[in-house]
Design a protein around this nucleic acid. Structure first.
Lengths: 198, 198
DNA sequence: CACAAAATTGGACAGTGTTCAATTCCGCGA
DNA sequence: TCGCGGAATTGAACACTGTCCAATTTTGTG
């Protein structure tokens, strides 16, 4: 078969990423396959490779989509909250990871090959989540330098990320810890309190 | 070729794990291949599968070896230290990950297939690192319940782990953060101080 | 010395990412 | 309206993967 033009280039890209995202959610990173994505949308492998130079590019697009979902998820949780927004933030982080474990893990499973930088567009989109945290911290720590706030934001994200990782891979459960969210939240509160005091 | 008996079953196992460990360190998780391990030691794939029921079992053995190296690494660093042993602990954690990035990442890259539990022997060996942290915390927080100490240990490890992850994948560097270890250490100190005060 | 059991091989199978010649079609210019 | 260049699409080919297993050879034991 030759040229079809059932879809524009943009439509095709969307088709592929959407289906890829679905398959990532269902089967996880280890079982992901470009061929199966192609089959599911009724195209052949070659078409996928016509739009994404390599599997890594497709994976980047899929993970960027997950980041967008994640930001939106956190944003919505934050919307109705008035006080203790930090708790909402931490819980939202965990809940997203729990509800979309395969998607969440794929973000960290995929490592770009040496020398391939993140496309700037993806890079910007992924910063959104950090910005949400930065805004919350700025409200809690008025008068602090932007740089100081950013540092703290990244550190808190790293802290929560670590706890979430161990929660999902069963390390906490294995030692009888039933409340990893509480643990992470405790660390976050301490860090913010220390920043306030300094 | 049939039976050779150049090596006993135990020797062969050691050969495979040692070579596998070397290749994991050199090429990383994504490029790891049982066939190449077999070739490097002068055997065929089938022999590897005669000793390890599946690739997952070999990967478990390799990662357990990394855990042992890691524990030993931390233990040695701790040996000469008198005060501020927490700083030594955190720095040792980071340094090991930096010096053996591929090995360290492989620990988290490899996920056991659903329904395959960690062999108890591996499980025990991997607990060693946690025990080191527990001992240090117990010295710092006398009179606390074992359970409380364990909880804090796991939380501190998760915190440092999160920071280390972001340090190695470039997230910190990307935002101009030059001292992720300092950040992690700060969080650890705050958590311990809070535990002392409570 | 014979024989069962263990070890070792390498080919087979189904799958992967990637490349690319061949084919078909679309849109544009004449 | 026709023709043609370029774009899209395919699927076969290649080199690789994990896994399985019949065939072969050797070992240790009875």
């Amino acid at each position: 078969m030759g040229r079809r033009s059932d879809h524009s280039r943009a439509e095709l890209r969307e088709l592929i990423v959407a289906e890829g995202h679905r398959q990532m959610a269902d089967h996880g990173f280890a079982r992901f396959s470009a061929r199966q994505v192609a089959r599911a949308i009724g195209y052949s492998v070659g078409t996928v490779y016509n739009i994404f130079p390599s599997l890594d590019h497709l994976l980047v697009a899929i993970n960027t989509r997950t980041f967008a979902l994640w930001s939106e998820f956190v944003r919505q949780r934050l919307e109705g909250a008035d006080e203790d927004r930090i708790a909402v933030l931490v819980e939202a982080y965990f809940d997203f990871a729990r509800e979309h474990t395969n998607l969440w893990m794929a973000i960290y499973d995929h490592r770009l090959p040496e020398g391939m930088p993140l496309p700037p567009e993806d890079d910007a989109s992924r910063r959104e989540l950090t910005l949400i945290v930065i805004r919350e911290l700025a409200a809690l720590l008025p008068g602090r330098s932007e740089h100081e706030i950013e540092r703290l934001a990244r550190s808190l994200i790293a802290t929560v990320h670590g706890h979430c990782t161990y929660a999902l891979n069963g390390s906490f459960e294995l030692m009888g810890e039933t409340d990893p969210v509480g643990l992470a939240l405790g660390r976050a509160r301490e860090a913010i309190a220390a920043a306030k005091a300094a």
